[in-house]
Design a protein around this nucleic acid. Structure first.
Length: 648
RNA sequence: GGUCAUGUAGCUCAGCCUGGCAGAGCGAAGGUUUUGUAAACCUUAGGUCGCGGGUUCAAAUCCCGUCAUGACCUCCA
């Protein structure tokens, strides 16, 4: 049984003619109009039975309470399903549901109405414009297997290329699968033991994995506060909300822009070393292009739509279709595979509901590295998949997030894929090095058969997906991407979808949340040295030492180290304090003593050590840490006296 | 849409319960100071107390409405 609940300002219907032979007899043959009511469009499906009535009535009651509705119209609506029950049985059940509702609301001021069954009717209504005004549910006979509904966090996990399914008569395949998705949850340990989630004993060090499980399936939310990174991103002058734009479209201050640029360059270089070919695809597409049309007409809500002249356009929410449309026009031989296309989208757009947006965790405009690998067969896909796993691990580790302490892995696959590839999956977990969360589906609902992702668990116990990869066995056919094999046959490649880091903004979110965790533990918060706008802050004891400061700054510049000079008329203590609050790793002080001994005084923030060294040593010290990470010059005035105050 | 909370100087906030001159710290500007490892000192400028209405001799404060924001609920191809 499927129902669609609509909270409407009004509804009008008029029975025109009998649609089936045994349509019920009408008591009133005139136009009906109801104001401010909940319309329940209902399809009764094959096999639906009386035992479900209670659940349905409970759902309706629940919905009414939430929106404070006082009136219900039950409306038989066959078009929600292609698997309908016979009309006599359906009518029977329909009337029983009405009866149950009347009984339930017997004592209340809620009125129950019902539209006639078996009639062709004219229908007009206006749905209210609030988020809960539309709500679809499906009901099934009680089974043992747990049913999960996709929530929004899972959307990340599904990642970029959402299902594009053919219409099957009113409700999309994607919507159907979502509501019917059956999966079981396990923990898979590094020795290959698959343990049911409720039987696994979490050790102390596995608290985050437990959090992930809670977050994913038990939907336990612990907190009601703003995540700490929001304050940090403002305090550090990284980014902030932009009230003049749409929510979820942030402004990035100089420090934030530099941080993003460095991360972007780093990920792009890593993918390039792996063999990804960087391309660029449009950020907007024609909503009426054949590849998009059937899909978007049904779900117009989730992306930004633009009307320009006569054209309807939408902003991309992933790099997938741009790359697929490109690959479709390539002439591919098996000799060219695996082919890896890569783009770092700046931006991808998703018009998430306003209530879902928080700081840098979830945005409406975000930068997503996206690498698609086109493989000739499953064997090639599997071996490539491993390389990309290693790539992803090294990317997040080098960024400064450790798979051991900061990230939890989830793997999702179908039962069939698991039984055929047990050893392969066990090896993946072994490579990861600690137990992972497993979601196993009975059958394949999505375009992929295997997918993993790294989740960062933030200070509030919420999980956010970062790196991910999937084995996609469907989209090449859908987009018409083919290659020619060694016998001259056209074949569809298997496509891998990898984001080695996840969204760049979300990486910053994770780094800041990690720092907040450190603060909570009484430790020193920090961002990796290579991502700091100011790597070295130079402070003269007095104005007369400015020449020596300038000399040092020049040496740092020559060595690709970002430095600046605090030349303001402030006390030394205050300058040091401000360098601390900016999380600057190295503060160098130059005064009489230093000039005399030809050294500099170094204050190391992370180790809280003060010592004197010569300049060469200082340079080496920093270069050893930054190594071959991308470098860009400082993105602020080098003299603090000429710098505007940005952080709040 | 619901529940709760918040909205006062550029920022962070106090004042509201119990109506009586619009406040503090930081920041900014000017000056003094020339600094040795986490906040020098003095002075000055800064306000449509979100908006509209009501009660009152008098409203930031009480009441009603409204807008915005946040958390949660809900929803989320």
């Amino acid at each position: 049984m499927r129902i669609l609940q609509l909270h409407v300002d009004y509804i009008e219907y008029f029975p025109v003619s009998k649609e089936i032979a045994d349509a019920e007899t009408l008591t009133l043959n005139e136009k009906q109009r109801l104001e401010d009511t909940v319309v329940i469009l209902m399809s009764i499906e094959r096999g639906d039975e009386d035992s479900m009535i209670v659940d349905i009535a409970a759902e309706i009651k629940d919905y009414l309470e939430k929106i404070k509705g006082k009136s219900v119209l039950l409306y038989p609506y066959a078009h929600l399903s292609s698997n309908l029950e016979s009309t006599d049985k359906a009518f029977n059940l329909f009337v029983k549901i009405e009866k149950e509702l009347r009984q339930m609301f017997n004592q209340s001021d809620i009125t129950i109405n019902r539209a006639p069954f078996g009639w062709t009717k004219t229908l007009e209504f206006k749905v209210k414009g609030h988020p809960m005004a539309e709500n679809s549910k499906s009901f099934h006979k009680k089974k043992d297997i747990q049913q999960t509904k996709f929530n929004n966090e899972r959307e990340d996990l599904l990642d970029s290329c959402h299902d594009i399914e053919e219409n099957d008569g009113g409700v999309s395949e994607a919507l159907k699968t979502e509501k019917n998705l059956k999966s079981e949850w396990y923990i898979l340990d590094t020795s290959g033991n698959l343990i049911k989630q409720n039987e696994f004993k979490f050790s102390k060090s596995e608290r985050n994995l437990e959090n992930l499980l809670n977050y994913e399936i038990l939907k336990k939310r612990i907190v009601d506060e703003q995540p700490p990174h929001v304050k940090l991103m403002r305090k550090l002058g990284i980014s902030d909300y932009e009230p003049a734009s749409d929510s979820g479209n942030m402004r990035y201050y100089p420090k934030g822009r530099l941080l993003k640029s460095l991360l972007e360059q780093f990920v792009t270089r890593k993918v390039s070393e792996y063999g990804g070919l960087e391309v660029e695809t449009p950020i907007m597409y024609d909503s009426h292009h054949p590849s998009m049309e059937s899909y978007f007409n049904r779900f117009p809500a989730r992306q930004y739509n633009i009307k320009s002249d006569q054209k309807d356009l939408f902003l991309r929410f992933a790099a997938c279709f741009g790359q697929f449309l490109m690959a479709k026009d390539f002439q591919l031989s098996y000799k060219n595979l695996p082919l890896k296309l890569y783009e770092l989208t700046r931006y991808s757009f998703r018009r998430e509901k306003s209530g879902e947006l928080v700081g840098l965790r979830r945005l409406r405009a975000f930068s997503m590295p996206d690498c698609h690998g086109f493989c000739r067969d499953l064997d090639q896909a599997k071996s490539e998949f491993l390389k990309r796993f290693q790539l992803s691990v090294s990317v997040v580790e080098e960024i400064g997030l450790s798979t051991r302490d900061d990230l939890e892995m989830a793997i999702r696959f179908t039962k069939d894929f698991y039984s055929e590839n047990k050893q392969y999956i066990h090896n993946l977990v072994k490579d990861f090095g600690k137990p992972v969360l497993v979601e196993m589906w009975d059958e394949r609902f999505f375009y992929f058969t295997l997918k993993w992702e790294f989740n960062f668990i933030d200070n509030l116990g919420k999980a956010s997906a970062l790196s991910t990869d999937q084995i996609d066995v469907e989209n090449s056919e859908r987009y018409g991407i083919t290659f020619v094999d060694e016998y001259g046959n056209k074949k569809y490649p298997i496509i891998l979808h990898n984001s080695p880091s996840g969204a760049i903004e979300r990486v910053i979110f994770a780094l800041l949340e990690k720092s907040a965790k450190l603060m909570r533990q009484g430790k020193v918060p920090y961002l990796p040295l290579w991502l700091m706008n100011t790597q070295v802050r130079i402070i003269p004891i007095g104005n007369e030492f400015m020449p020596q400061c300038n000399e040092l700054l020049a040496v740092l510049k020559e060595n690709s180290i970002r430095g600046d000079i605090d030349d303001r008329d402030e006390t030394l203590s205050k300058k040091i304090r401000e360098a601390e609050t900016e999380w600057i790793h190295y503060v160098v002080i130059i005064g009489e003593k230093e000039v005399a001994s030809n050294t500099v005084s170094i204050r190391e923030r992370l180790t809280k050590k003060n010592y004197s060294e010569n300049v060469t040593k200082l340079v080496t010290l920093i270069k050893d840490q930054v190594k071959d990470k991308p470098f860009l010059p400082i993105n602020l005035q080098e003299y603090l006296s000429s710098r505007p105050r940005i952080a709040s």
